[in-house]
Protein backbone atom coordinates (compact mmCIF):
# COMPACT_ATOMS: atom_id res chain seq x y z
CA UNK A 1 0.00 0.00 0.00
CA UNK A 2 1.37 3.39 -1.01
CA UNK A 3 1.80 6.15 1.48
CA UNK A 4 -0.92 8.80 1.45
CA UNK A 5 0.33 12.10 0.07
CA UNK A 6 -0.63 15.41 1.62
CA UNK A 7 -2.87 16.32 -1.30
CA UNK A 8 -4.81 13.08 -1.10
CA UNK A 9 -5.32 13.60 2.62
CA UNK A 10 -6.65 17.11 1.96
CA UNK A 11 -9.01 15.80 -0.73
CA UNK A 12 -10.30 13.05 1.54
CA UNK A 13 -10.87 15.44 4.42
CA UNK A 14 -12.57 17.89 2.04
CA UNK A 15 -15.00 15.19 0.98
CA UNK A 16 -15.82 14.45 4.62
CA UNK A 17 -16.15 18.18 5.27
CA UNK A 18 -18.54 18.53 2.34
CA UNK A 19 -20.69 15.80 3.84
CA UNK A 20 -20.61 17.44 7.25
CA UNK A 21 -21.48 20.83 5.73
CA UNK A 22 -24.73 19.37 4.41
CA UNK A 23 -25.91 18.81 8.01
CA UNK A 24 -27.03 22.43 7.62
CA UNK A 25 -29.94 20.95 5.68
CA UNK A 26 -31.56 19.90 8.96
CA UNK A 27 -32.17 23.51 9.97
CA UNK A 28 -33.67 24.43 6.63
CA UNK A 29 -35.89 21.35 6.74
CA UNK A 30 -37.20 22.17 10.21
CA UNK A 31 -37.77 25.79 9.23
CA UNK A 32 -39.64 24.94 6.05
CA UNK A 33 -41.72 22.31 7.79
CA UNK A 34 -42.64 24.80 10.48
CA UNK A 35 -43.62 27.38 7.85
CA UNK A 36 -45.74 24.84 5.98
CA UNK A 37 -47.40 23.62 9.18
CA UNK A 38 -48.28 27.13 10.27
CA UNK A 39 -49.50 27.86 6.74
CA UNK A 40 -51.81 24.83 6.87
CA UNK A 41 -53.06 25.99 10.27
CA UNK A 42 -53.76 29.48 8.93
CA UNK A 43 -55.66 28.10 5.90
CA UNK A 44 -57.70 25.98 8.31
CA UNK A 45 -58.64 29.07 10.29
CA UNK A 46 -59.18 31.39 7.34
CA UNK A 47 -59.77 29.49 4.10
CA UNK A 48 -60.73 32.68 2.23
CA UNK A 49 -57.20 34.15 2.65
CA UNK A 50 -55.53 31.14 1.01
CA UNK A 51 -53.77 33.02 -1.79
CA UNK A 52 -52.17 35.51 0.55
CA UNK A 53 -51.16 32.74 2.99
CA UNK A 54 -49.49 30.69 0.25
CA UNK A 55 -47.54 33.75 -0.92
CA UNK A 56 -46.32 34.54 2.59
CA UNK A 57 -45.55 30.88 3.30
CA UNK A 58 -43.45 30.47 0.14
CA UNK A 59 -41.53 33.63 1.00
CA UNK A 60 -40.89 32.41 4.55
CA UNK A 61 -39.90 28.95 3.31
CA UNK A 62 -37.43 30.48 0.85
CA UNK A 63 -35.88 32.61 3.57
CA UNK A 64 -35.65 29.60 5.89
CA UNK A 65 -33.95 27.69 3.08
CA UNK A 66 -31.07 30.17 2.94
CA UNK A 67 -29.01 28.54 5.69
CA UNK A 68 -29.30 25.17 3.97
CA UNK A 69 -28.15 26.77 0.73
CA UNK A 70 -25.11 28.23 2.52
CA UNK A 71 -24.21 24.70 3.59
CA UNK A 72 -24.65 23.51 0.01
CA UNK A 73 -22.34 26.26 -1.25
CA UNK A 74 -19.67 25.33 1.30
CA UNK A 75 -19.94 21.71 0.17
CA UNK A 76 -19.69 22.72 -3.51
CA UNK A 77 -16.64 24.89 -2.82
CA UNK A 78 -14.96 22.02 -0.98
CA UNK A 79 -15.69 19.60 -3.81
CA UNK A 80 -15.14 21.67 -6.96
CA UNK A 81 -13.21 24.81 -6.04
CA UNK A 82 -11.16 23.59 -3.12
CA UNK A 83 -9.11 26.47 -1.73
CA UNK A 84 -6.70 24.12 0.12
CA UNK A 85 -5.38 22.22 -2.90
Amino acid sequence: MDAITGKELILACSAIGAGLAMIAGIGAGIGQGYAAGKGAEAVGKQPEAQGEIIKTMLLGAAVAETTGIYGLIIALILLFANPFV
Binding site: A62, E65, T66, I69, Y70, L72, I73, L76
Partner: peptide, 10 residues
Protein backbone atom coordinates in the same frame (compact mmCIF):
# COMPACT_ATOMS: atom_id res chain seq x y z
CA UNK B 1 -27.20 36.23 -4.43
CA UNK B 2 -26.34 32.91 -2.80
CA UNK B 3 -29.98 31.90 -2.37
CA UNK B 4 -30.62 32.19 -6.09
CA UNK B 5 -27.22 30.77 -7.08
CA UNK B 6 -27.39 27.82 -4.67
CA UNK B 7 -30.87 26.81 -5.73
CA UNK B 8 -30.13 26.91 -9.45
CA UNK B 9 -26.65 25.39 -9.30
CA UNK B 10 -27.91 22.63 -6.99
Amino acid sequence: AFRLFGNIVG
